[in-house]
């Protein structure tokens, strides 16, 4: 069996008397899209937050390429090559697309202009933003100098995905990327997810939308009551059975 690129074992997270994660495991294999589904309160968000450094688990271990890592901030996870597209997108509306792509890791000009005067390399960042958007086939955005608040929901999502794809070297995590989108925009974002995977970056996809999950996922991780209930193959299980396992109406096969 191949070593998982990202692995979690026995993660526990309690908030006061509420146990969000009760010893949850997760394995992400190289080059795959792993969908994570689960009912509300199943611990999907807590699981993802623990992997992306947004919360620190009380117990358990996270392994990246087989070696234990511990993230205390989202920045730690990013430095390790794990990029997250949050449901809130985490973009700054009044800044332009290029500025958002490089938010928190801006490029500086070469020479004294950069080292002494701390000047930003605007053109460099703009060109690179253009390249990243083109690489993902995001044609609806013409001008990387456009403010994000003037974009549609799908375009904003594309910017957030492009940022993750541009900087994620190991893993990209996407939290409900199609939740707020229309049919056509969802289609474009699903294509983006497949493209990211085809570039060799494994993706963890959290979604409530079963047709979307069954369309793009290579494996489906079913989360229930703070634990991993099952991992299923979307080609050998029906959507209704997956939902039945998720809600506890059915025991997983095998």
């Amino acid at each position: 069996m191949t070593t998982p690129i990202l692995q979690a074992t026995g993660l526990v997270k309690r908030y006061g008397r509420v146990t969000a994660l009760a010893g949850s495991d997760l394995e992400l294999l190289p080059g795959e899209i792993l969908a994570v589904i689960g009912d509300n309160g199943a611990g999907k968000s807590s699981l993802i937050k623990a992997l992306s450094g947004a919360v620190i688990p009380d117990e358990g271990e996270v392994l990246l390429d087989g070696s234990p890592v511990s993230f205390s901030t989202p920045l730690d996870a990013r430095k390790a090559g794990i990029e997250t597209v949050h449901q809130s997108l985490a973009v700054s509306p009044s800044l332009d697309i290029a500025a958002n792509l490089f938010l928190g890791r801006e490029l500086r000009r070469k020479g004294v202009l950069g080292s002494v005067f701390r000047m930003l390399d605007r053109n460099g960042m703009r060109d690179e933003a253009r390249r990243q958007l083109d690489a993902l086939g995001i044609m609806t955005i013409q001008n990387p100098g456009q403010a994000v608040e003037t974009l549609s929901g799908g375009q904003r999502q594309a910017v957030a995905v492009a940022r993750a794809a541009a900087f994620g070297s190991r893993v990209v995590i996407m939290d409900e990327p199609t939740a707020a989108l229309g049919v056509r925009e969802s289609r474009a974002v699903l294509d983006l997810i497949l493209q990211v995977r085809d570039r060799g970056l494994p993706v963890i996809l959290i979604s409530h939308n079963m047709p979307h999950v069954f369309e793009v996922a290579d494996r489906i991780h079913i989360q229930r009551l703070g634990r991993r209930k099952a991992v299923v193959d979307p080609k050998s299980i029906s959507m209704s059975d997956a939902v039945a396992i998720m809600t506890g109406a059915m025991e997983p096969p095998g």
Partner: peptide, 14 residues
């Protein structure tokens, strides 16, 4: 600018 625009988004952006 981004801290004033959206504090949480800025924090998540590192």
């Amino acid at each position: 600018y981004s801290t004033g625009d959206d504090l949480e988004a800025s924090r998540l952006s590192g």
